[in-house]
């Protein structure tokens, strides 16, 4: 990065640059002596004098340049990366505060504890995000309403902070699955298609959708070529999305199963992961991690970077040297007057 490429936030301050010549004309420290014939000739002094003057010019120049606010402007860089564009769709309903993967109904009451589903989801998602450097993440949470918390971004910090924030507090009352799915898909609206698009649904329950909603969701996801990954976090061990013979009759009409069936029937790429324990949750995440690698064009926005610091450091160092010289000189003058 050369000096010429820098932009200045206060370019008019550069008009002060001629002040850097001041040290070369300053004679304010001069003392009148009776006869200069006594002053010894000394080449070393010439060198020192020159460097002191140059140093003071450097101090002035770098201070002025620093004050003028140099910065590298914000710019976009495109590069090829491997990964996917993922919208995390997180359930924030009250049931997510329940404990994850307990064996009995009685153990469900440990609300908001460390092992709540939300906390578990948070810690695994955090790791997931960290493992994928080139992915673009969005974040939508839903309960009675779906809220687009974070539109698609490459910033790892932003997504991590959002995941983190989501684990705080308690859940809300309701679950509005269709709205959430639509909002998640809308995140990809008006975005160029860069590579694989995933909605990663983390939820512990489903909802029965109306026919109209089903149609809309199906067409929307098809049009945008979005695949759905569902990490289903059941509260109790044993509940599965696919019907089996050992099912309790209570589970037959669970909305989760209906939703699962719907996803399967639409023909959009869909995969469900049933997280029955911490271990399976981790495995599910790992599997998604491995699957979703496609070459995609990553557009990175490099933020505006202030570049005043090196100038101030240079000024500081030069000023330090000058201060030492000045203190030494002042001591010398004092000694001469003793």
């Amino acid at each position: 990065m050369s000096l010429m490429d820098l932009h200045w936030s206060q370019p008019y301050l550069l008009l002060l640059l001629p002040f850097a010549l001041l040290p070369w004309f300053n004679h304010s420290q001069e003392k009148t002596i009776a006869w200069s014939a006594f002053v010894p000739k000394d080449p070393w002094s010439t060198t020192v004098g020159l460097s002191l003057k140059i140093l003071s010019s450097i101090v002035l120049i770098s201070l002025i340049l620093g004050l003028a606010g140099p910065y590298e402007p914000e710019k976009k860089v495109e590069r090829l990366g491997e990964g996917a564009e993922i919208v995390l769709l997180l359930d924030r309903s009250r049931s997510m505060d329940d404990a994850f993967a307990v064996k009995t109904q009685a153990a469900l009451v440990s609300v908001g504890k460390k092992d709540s589903k939300r906390r578990v989801a948070k810690s695994y998602l955090t790791e997931f995000v960290k493992k994928r450097p080139d992915d673009r993440f969005g974040f939508v949470l839903f309960s009675s309403q779906a809220i687009k918390l974070l539109s698609l971004t490459y910033s790892k910090e932003a997504i991590l902070a959002t995941i983190n924030a989501n684990a705080i507090g308690k859940g809300l009352k309701d679950t509005n699955m269709p709205d959430a799915l639509i909002k998640a898909a809308e995140m990809f609206e008006d975005q160029p298609y860069r590579g694989s698009r995933i909605v990663l649904l983390v939820s512990d329950g489903g909802q029965i959708l109306t026919e109209e909603e089903e149609k809309k969701i199906a067409s929307l996801y098809k049009r945008m070529k979005i695949s759905i990954n569902w990490i289903y976090m059941s509260s109790m061990v044993g509940v599965t999305l696919d019907a089996s013979d050992s099912d309790s009759y209570l589970w037959e009409d669970l909305p989760e199963r209906k939703l699962h069936d719907f996803f399967n029937s639409t023909g959009i790429p869909y995969q469900a992961f049933e997280a029955r324990s911490l271990k399976t949750f981790a495995e599910a995440i790992d599997e998604i991690n491995q699957q979703q690698y496609q070459t995609l064009i990553v557009e990175q926005t490099l933020p505006r970077v202030s570049k005043h610091q090196p100038f101030y450091i240079i000024a500081f160092l030069a000023m330090l040297a000058l201060t030492f010289a000045q203190v030494y000189s002042a001591w010398g003058v004092r000694k001469a007057h003793e």
Partner: peptide, 19 residues
């Protein structure tokens, strides 16, 4: 002495009283 030798140490700028 000061008019002959204004400083004992450090950077000293001076002006000849005559010239």
């Amino acid at each position: 002495d000061v008019d002959h030798l204004p400083s004992h140490a450090g950077w000293t700028e001076m002006r000849d009283a005559e010239t």
